[in-house]
């Protein structure tokens, strides 16, 4: 299996000059293609910081993040924008869709940034929204969709750019049980059928129960790294 993400002694220290807080402490992990990983831990354990570091949204104080053989730790901000655009998909806790655009336009938007042709963009957006079960909501704006539907649009948007992996930050936190299960079904299916690498930061037991790998962080360090290959 090909390694998609590799972290080496990854460390992030906040307020380093006053009262240093080690949010992430010498974390060395590998994530291989097609993995469905849940990063868990109590509040303040460093889950979000770790996700931000491997997503190129934040820079480590020490250590390296290597994505597909590219070290992004020291990459310039302008290059990071482009790198994220081409390699990483994001799903956020509160959906973060563009409220003035329709579902189809929200999904197309990321491909627009990638300068895809209009025809290709439209085709892929429709395909992705069909995959997440929203083929009848193509022209609905976020305000006309339920929370679960908005999060499914966000998943379609994250996958539309064909990223190397998808980072999901507590994607089910704002959803009711039915919508959460629905979303997890879709993401599990895409993970298996399309071999998409998924990394979740979560507290949600429903997500943890589906993940084939569960990494527990405590005080910024890896406390447990469990694999559940039998889970489907």
């Amino acid at each position: 299996m090909k390694t998609v993400i590799e972290t080496k002694d990854l460390t992030k220290i906040y307020n380093s000059s006053v009262a240093p807080v080690k949010a992430v402490n010498k974390v060395s992990l590998d994530f291989v293609e097609g993995e469905f990983t849940a990063i868990v831990g109590p509040s303040g354990s460093g889950k979000n910081t770790f996700l931000n570091l491997i997503g190129g949204l934040d820079k480590p104080t020490e250590g390296q993040v290597i994505i597909d053989d590219t070290d992004i730790s020291g990459m310039k901000e302008s290059k990071l924008f482009d790198f994220r655009l081409k390699n990483i998909g994001f799903v956020f806790q509160s959906y973060n869709l563009i409220p003035v655009l329709t579902a189809k336009e929200n999904v197309s938007f990321i491909m627009l940034l990638q300068k895809e042709s209009k025809a290709k963009m439209e085709k892929r957006a429709v395909e992705m929204l069909e995959q997440v079960g929203l083929s009848e909501k193509l022209n609905s704006r976020p305000g006309q969709l339920s929370g679960g539907q908005q999060q499914r649009v966000a998943v379609a948007r994250a996958l539309a750019s064909k990223p190397k992996f998808v980072l999901a930050d507590e994607p089910t936190a704002n959803l009711d049980t039915e919508s959460a299960f629905n979303l997890l079904d879709i993401m599990s299916r895409l993970n298996k059928e399309e071999n998409i690498t998924l990394i979740f930061s979560t507290h949600d037991q429903r997500v943890i129960d589906r993940a084939r790998r569960v990494i527990t962080l405590v005080d910024g360090a890896v406390s447990k790294d469990e694999k559940f290959e039998s889970r489907k």
Binding site: G55, L57, S78, F81, D82, R84, L85, K86, F90, F92, S94, N96, I98, P99, I110, L113, Q114, R157
Partner: peptide, 16 residues
């Protein structure tokens, strides 16, 4: 702010 953060996260550069 949240929306702008999302746009930056998914790769919309500062110029845009």
């Amino acid at each position: 702010i949240k929306e702008l953060g999302m746009l930056m996260a998914i790769g919309m550069n500062k110029k845009r």
